[in-house]
Design a protein around this nucleic acid. Structure first.
Lengths: 246, 246
DNA sequence: GATAGTATTATTGTCGGACAAAAAGACAGG
DNA sequence: CCTGTCTTTTTGTCCGACAATAATACTATC
């Protein structure tokens, strides 16, 4: 017996969206190019403007096009790392991922990132790490600020590693870490100071191109979060809080 | 002097979208719940149906709501892993990430995943790995099939590791690996056989709860891809091809 | 001739209403 | 209980409209 797959009906707005998306992905439409006005698109695709607008909302939501603030035309963009990460973070949270899973993953990827950074960090990337460390040291009074500082440090190190895939892969984890840390940090008094020390040690190791020490201290740094959660009485098997929407 | 940020103007369709998204993220609207019809939403938000529809396109694009095929009402969903991964993969490709970066990241995360799998794989997860290995061994004639088999093996191992964050984190990398492998595999004759051997060794190690061997063989497995790219004459510093759209 | 200010046009965001096609629901008959 | 038919909802798409504002052309001024 032959079986038939159901006929896939694609509504117009989606066909339009994929048509435009394809052009963006194959680089026919390049970053910065602005899209024709809606009326013209409607003409070209021979559909109503409403249909075009629905398609644009899809693309906009995928960050393939954006409107710069205070401007009218839509502009082709590549999805910013943060936006994509936000999606992934949301998704992970909705899947009831636990603090433990996030933490285990960080424990796994961060030390090698630090090692890579130590082995081939360039001057500007190093400077960025330095300033992240300095900013954290200078002011970590509010929980929110402290936590943001922690994330920025990780970002700076990942940038220094020179691997953008790692940087982007790491980003959703940071979002979730941030969400969880904000709850934890004020309940674990020693946390702030220990973070500062770890950052300084890691920075020093990276500056000295000391791969082994960088890896080790990053390992300690990440493991410390686990301790923080334990001290503050947060069950590591509880689901992570959803990251804030922007 | 005090400075003022420009007043952020949020169009109605976005305000509606975030309003609904918020309800989904805070679990007021749960997975499987169906949304009210567009007309009713228009009433509730006191906006036109067009505005509602544009908002729905945004949510749909974010995978927070979906229409089951052949059905009419919109249903609240949590974004499927594959969809999210598709986005991230696209984004990475648009950022001109190189084969090397993808490969390095895999080299970094896969061995520990295999180690985790070896240390606490459950029966069903093990069975899934076994069947993935068997499927690959049974038929890897077409490039596309072979490559899909490779990805499925990685997925099965990640599932066995019991860490969903790793699973989801890994997914975009697999998409890019697949896109790159499809080009490479037919140009590197020994690749197919070596993959089969590696899969069998890793499976055996996981079955035996042999953490060290699992990690080692997974390391070899991933490093082999690098060799494949070299043999087939693909520059590892060339950008990865964009993953196929669905 | 360059610049600042003003008028015009183009474009977006939103609305209202309309209708065919398809799904969901109600209902009768076997 | 299943099956086929009829009715009601609901979606996808269209059309036309209009206020608000960005983009552009134009003008006056120095």
């Amino acid at each position: 017996m032959t079986t038939f797959a159901p006929l896939p009906f694609e509504p117009g707005y989606r066909r339009v969206a994929t048509a435009i998306a394809t052009r963006i992905l194959d680089r026919t439409l390049r970053e910065g190019h602005s899209l024709p006005p809606e009326a013209e698109l409607a003409d070209q695709f021979a559909v109503n403007r409403s249909t075009i607008r629905e398609a644009l909302r899809e693309l906009e939501s995928a960050e393939l096009v954006t409107r710069r603030r205070g401007t009218k035309r839509m502009v082709v963009t590549r999805p910013a790392v943060e936006q994509i990460a936000g999606r992934v973070g949301q998704s992970l949270a909705l899947h009831d991922v636990t603090v433990r899973e996030v933490w285990q993953t960080l424990e796994l990827i961060e030390p090698p990132i630090a090692a890579d950074a130590a082995s081939h960090a360039e001057a500007t990337a190093l400077e960025a790490i330095r300033s992240a460390v300095a900013r954290y040291a200078a002011d970590h009074s509010s929980a929110q600020q402290a936590v943001a500082g922690v994330a920025d440090f990780f970002r700076a190190v990942a940038i220094a590693s020179g691997n953008r895939v790692l940087l982007i892969t790491q980003e959703p984890l940071l979002l979730l870490l941030v969400a969880a840390l904000e709850v934890m940090i004020d309940r674990a008094p020693p946390a702030r100071a220990r973070i500062a020390i770890a950052q300084q040690q890691i920075l020093a190791a990276i500056e000295a191109h000391d791969v082994v020490t960088a890896r080790e201290w990053m390992g300690k740094h990440v493991r410390d979060f686990r301790r923080g959660f334990e001290i503050s009485g947060i069950d590591v098997d509880s689901p992570v809080p959803a990251p804030r929407r922007d």
